[in-house]
């Protein structure tokens, strides 16, 4: 399992949830993981039901078997000052740059530089060792930008290395790219069993491959339970309304005669089943498209009660069961 796990996906597919569940899943048997947020939305804090995360690595969860999950919400401005301090010993000059508006420029006006800092910080955490020479984090999981931007985001250092042909920025950018393009890194894409997310996943994989970035797995999120099977759906097409009405009546839902309580339920219930059948068909097709991508495919269930902390642990267990950690 690679040490840097990058999780991307189309907006609305739940990539933050999957990233968090993966961080939990990887933190088993005394392992320590760092969950990194780069988009400044405080989605991790909301998932773990804690206060907004500051720009510091702090423990947010304990996994089964004594593992620990740390989280870090990267603030680009602080990361830049951090970076200047760490690599160039430009502490006071850094503050002066801030006065000039250079930090604002770097972190907002030229957001590409922001991406340099974000990826740089994550790679630093991957490489960081303690005094005994052991890695501080066994795994770093990044809740990355959406599929449409992921390749450019990860590749920004290539671009920077091309722009700054010498100097510390050049060297730093190259060091980051070495980590990102090595087997140390895996980029996972989160999808849903719907057309657009599946299409974006396929496009995203092609882009990542073209850029030479290591593609990991596809995780299908929010998979709805199968309620009606193929035999049911077959019967659905031929079943007489009266038979369903009788069955509903037998279930204790009122009269099966025309106008009876059970009879009145038949049409809306059959309409819902038709919708289910249509979706079932579509999901089937989309699953086939994803399978054809030739990557390991994982499926996470839709949680009926909505997403909460307990649900997150449930998804982590599921990922572990499916061999993702």
């Amino acid at each position: 399992m690679s040490r840097l796990q990058v999780v991307s996906g189309k907006g609305g597919t739940g990539k933050t949830t999957v990233a968090a569940a993966l961080a939990l899943a990887l933190a088993t048997e005394g392992k320590r993981t760092l969950l990194v947020e780069v988009e400044g939305r405080q989605g991790i804090a909301q998932l773990f039901e804690t206060d907004a995360l500051p720009y510091e690595e702090r423990k947010i969860a304990v996994a089964s078997g004594g593992g620990e999950v740390y989280a870090l919400a990267i603030d680009p401005e602080l990361a830049l000052l951090d970076y200047l301090q760490m690599f160039y010993k430009l502490g006071s000059a850094g503050r002066a740059l801030k006065k000039l508006g250079a930090i604002d420029f770097a972190t907002t006006v030229a957001p590409g530089l922001r991406d340099v800092l974000l990826t740089g910080k994550a790679c630093e955490a991957v490489r960081r060792k303690d005094r005994a020479g052991r890695f501080v984090y066994d795994y770093v999981v990044m809740d990355a930008p959406p599929t449409g931007r992921i390749t450019r985001f990860l590749n920004v250092n290539d671009e920077v290395a091309g722009l700054a042909k010498i100097g510390p920025i050049h060297n730093q950018a190259q060091a980051v790219m070495r980590v990102l393009k090595s087997p140390e890194t895996e980029v996972h894409l989160v999808s849903l069993l719907e057309e657009m997310p599946v299409q974006e996943t396929a496009d995203g994989i092609a882009e990542l491959r073209t850029a030479g970035l290591p593609v990991g797995r596809v995780i299908v999120n929010m998979v709805r339970p199968q309620v009606l099977d193929a035999a049911d759906l077959e019967l659905l097409r031929t079943v007489p309304r009266t038979a369903v009405a009788k069955s509903l009546s037998a279930a204790g839902l009122g009269g099966a005669r025309r106008g009876g309580h059970a009879e009145k339920l038949v049409d809306p219930l059959l309409a819902q089943a038709e919708e289910y059948a249509e979706r079932y068909e579509l999901e089937h097709e989309q699953r086939a498209v994803l399978t054809d991508l030739g990557l390991p495919l994982h499926e996470l269930p839709l949680l009926a009660e909505g997403m909460d902390l307990a649900g997150l642990y449930e998804l982590a267990t599921e990922l572990r069961k499916q061999g993702m950690s």
Binding site: V227, L228, A231, D232, L235, L236, V239, A243, V244, K246, S247, L248, A250, A251, L269, L270, Q272, A273, Y276
Partner: peptide, 13 residues
């Protein structure tokens, strides 16, 4: 089998 389908309809609902 109709009952089975109806059970499904109810669970779906």
């Amino acid at each position: 089998s109709v009952d089975r389908l109806t059970t499904g309809l109810l669970r779906l609902h």
